[in-house]
């Protein structure tokens, strides 16, 4: 068969293949970052609280590329209301590390809390939301309490007794 005849036939074959194949499969191959939930993976969220400097440092690494939000919140126990409340002592009470339109990772953010006397009165939240298939899904972790979402594996967790207090969330979303 002449090349002149073969090329249109090949194009026709591609078109037929496209029509016969699942549209979703085609979209998944063209836009894997926007369709593949299985690739959402947070390698780590590391939060370091330095009691001496009163600093609070948070960063995370994302193993896959997907629209997401990551932020951390430090709360202090309020004995009057018997509830934990976000720390607001002149600085931000929470920090959004990666925002809703942010495909990029890893990102790093630093912010300060002054005068953190004892972690016993505080609790720390790390939130991770990801956008997939048109919806937001999320998980959050709380120190010192157990992870609230049992479908997520909390692989490591460290709290040095003195100096920098580092809480490492090593997360994987299957």
């Amino acid at each position: 068969m002449k090349t002149r005849k073969m090329i249109p036939l090949m194009a026709l074959a591609i078109m037929v293949g496209f029509a016969l194949s699942s549209c979703d499969a085609m979209l998944e191959s063209l836009f894997p970052n926007e369709t593949n939930k299985g690739q959402v993976q947070v390698n780590s969220i590391t939060v370091t609280v330095n009691l001496d400097k009163g600093s609070f440092d948070a960063y995370y690494g994302l193993g896959a590329w997907q629209m997401h939000k990551v932020w951390v919140v430090l709360e202090k126990y309020d004995s009057v209301s018997n509830k934990y409340k976000p720390v607001e002592n002149g600085y931000q009470s929470s920090y959004l590390i990666g925002d809703a339109n942010d495909y990029a990772a890893p990102a790093r953010a630093q912010f300060r809390y002054d005068g953190i006397p004892d972690f016993g009165d505080y609790q720390l939240w790390a939130w991770f939301d990801y956008y997939s298939n048109g919806d937001w899904s999320g998980n959050y972790w709380n120190y010192p309490n157990d992870p609230s979402n049992t479908s997520v594996t909390l692989q490591s967790f460290a709290l040095p007794l003195a100096g920098d207090r580092e809480i490492l969330f090593d997360l994987y979303l299957p």
Binding site: F31, G98, D99, N101, D102, Y103, A104, A107
Partner: peptide, 13 residues
């Protein structure tokens, strides 16, 4: 053009 990136280039498809 609406993507607010953190130290990254814009998303191009």
């Amino acid at each position: 053009t609406n993507v607010q990136m953190v130290g990254q280039t814009q998303v191009s498809d």
